[in-house]
Amino acid sequence: MGTWFPKIYDAAMKPLEASQFKKIRRDLVEKAEGRVLEIGSGTGINFPYYKNALQVDAIEPNPSMSKRSDERLRCAQVPIQIHESGAESLPFADDTFDTVVATLVFCTIPEPLKALAEIQRVSKPGARLLFFEHVRMEPILLSKTQDFLNPLWEKICDGCQLNRDTLDLIKKSGIEVAKIESYYAKLFLYIEGINGMTEREKYDE
């Protein structure tokens, strides 16, 4: 990830954040309880909304991004620690987290299925997994348009995959999908998942 993109990220997102995104983020992040893992914390835009977490471990592979989160980190209402790490190899023990938060990040993760497997590994059985992501759209004309635009979009938006079917990836990973809400003609989805592997299943393995 480049060093120029973090400088424009908040400004580029401001129109969406000022409309519906702020409420979506707030509602999602307020559901995060116990020890929380945030995937790809970026400029810390979610940090002000944590109220019910005991502790947040936020991973962000780009130091230029996390550096821009300093002010939000200082103003956070709960303890937050940022780790410079990618999602495909999380520096945490098995069964560590009660909740995982990922917002607008899976479009940029190089190996999303590996990241989803890691999320399940470090989450407790029954942990709540909260996603807000843009996805591949259902109407064939719109999805083909996403395919057409993706090469240019990837270059402009620092690796973002406009046409990634993140919901399908979540389902394929074995995460139990409990709730889906759609926004902007189903371009954006709120997905509430559960780490479905029980203690008994882990013991039986």
Score class of each variant (00 low, 15 high):
G2W: 00
K7W: 10
Y9S: 03
A11L: 15
A12M: 15
M13E: 12
D27G: 02
L28Y: 09
V29D: 03
E30W: 06
A32Q: 10
G34N: 12
G34L: 06
L37F: 05
G40A: 10
S41W: 01
S41F: 04
I45S: 11
I45A: 14
N46I: 03
F47I: 07
P48I: 08
L54D: 15
A58F: 04
I59W: 00
P61V: 07
D70Y: 12
D70I: 06
R72E: 02
I80D: 02
Q81K: 14
S85G: 01
S85M: 02
L90N: 01
L90E: 00
D95S: 12
D95A: 09
F97K: 06
T99G: 06
T108R: 01
T108I: 04
E111R: 09
K114F: 00
R121G: 11
R121S: 09
S123G: 06
P125R: 03
G126P: 13
A127M: 07
R136Y: 11
M137K: 14
P139W: 13
I140L: 12
L141F: 12
T145S: 08
D147I: 06
F148R: 09
L152P: 02
K155E: 07
D158M: 02
D158H: 11
G159Y: 04
R164P: 15
I175W: 03
E176A: 12
A178H: 12
A178W: 02
I180P: 05
E181H: 12
Y184R: 10
F188K: 03
I194F: 05
N195P: 14
T198K: 04
D204H: 11
D204C: 04
